[in-house]
Simulated assay, not measured.
Amino acid sequence: MTLNFAHRGSLTEAPENTLPAFQKAIAHGAKAIEFDIQLTKDNYLVVCHDHKLTRFNPWTNKRITDLTLSELKQIDIGSSFNENYTGITVPTLDEVLELCPKNILLNIEIKNIPVIYKGIEEQLIHCLSKYNRFENILISSFDHVALKNVQEIAPTLPLGMLFYYRILNPWDYATKSGLNIASIHPNNVYTDRQLIEHCHNKGYQVYPFTVNKKERFNELVAYGVDGVFSNNPEIFSHE
């Protein structure tokens, strides 16, 4: 059985990383959902992938870090997807935690670089504590220093180590990092049977991103992958 993640919610059916996208993923029976967090100018945790919202609203050129939550909530990011989503805005982490049932695994990706959000790890742990959401939580990042910061605050939280480019023996790198790594999240482009087997031998689960074609998904399952991140409901709702 694979544990597949709805990548930014069901982003082919609703604007990515929004409450409607997460509602769609839940309706499909997704067992796991992935989303990204950033900090506003006034230190509110919000769920968004891009550092600017220009892709969703061409009139907006400011970065999230330069906007207050109030200013961010005035920006429509839904109508560019479909007029039925006009008025949809970037959600807060609080809103997402309130929406998603506790039996769904939430992969929360800390979206550092090119902006380094000082204190985002403390804010994240505080928010999880407020909602008593330390079960079924996986914290991931391409910024491995951010993972280290999370571990120092909440040592028992499982961590997912993201890799975009190929590096030599990522399983050894993860082991030598001293971090509480539960899973390796490689780019699916270079994920093969050998990488998966090496990671498994070190005790790491493997969740490649982003796998949208059923043929590639079936190939990775045959290699022994533990799950994938996907935009395809046929995959992320697959068991």
Rank of each mutant, 00 (worst) to 15 (best):
V145R: 11
L97A: 09
S70V: 05
A27F: 01
K202F: 13
N84K: 13
G9S: 02
I113H: 11
L53I: 08
N232I: 11
G78I: 04
V90M: 09
R63L: 06
G227E: 11
S10I: 00
H185K: 07
P186D: 12
E16C: 01
C127H: 00
A30W: 04
P208Y: 09
A14T: 01
G178A: 08
I88Y: 07
L195Q: 04
T89D: 04
S80A: 09
G9K: 02
N180T: 09
L67P: 04
K62E: 15
S10V: 00
I116F: 09
D192P: 11
E121R: 02
G178T: 09
F163L: 14
S79F: 01
K130T: 03
N149Y: 12
L159M: 13
V225P: 10
T2V: 11
F35I: 03
I153W: 07
E95A: 10
K214S: 07
A6Y: 00
I120L: 05
N180L: 05
N17K: 00
H51D: 15
D226W: 07
G178K: 13
V96R: 06
A146H: 08
S10D: 15
R166T: 14
T86G: 05
L105W: 06
N57W: 06
L220P: 10
A25T: 01
K111I: 04
L39V: 10
T89F: 05
C100K: 04
P155K: 05
E109P: 08
G9I: 03
D172C: 09
A30D: 02
C199A: 15
N136P: 00
T175M: 12
Q38L: 12
R216P: 03
T156L: 11
T18M: 02
A21Y: 02
S70L: 07
L11W: 02
N112S: 09
Q23W: 00
D172F: 13
I167K: 14
P58D: 10
G87W: 04
P186K: 12
A222F: 07
I33M: 07
L168Q: 12
V115S: 04
A21D: 01
R133F: 02
K24V: 00
I139A: 05
R63Q: 13
L53W: 10
E239H: 15
Q123P: 00
R55V: 06
I75P: 04
I125Y: 01
E98N: 09
F209I: 05
S183T: 14
I184P: 03
R55L: 12
Q23S: 04
P170E: 13
Q194N: 14
M1I: 05
E197T: 14
N201P: 02
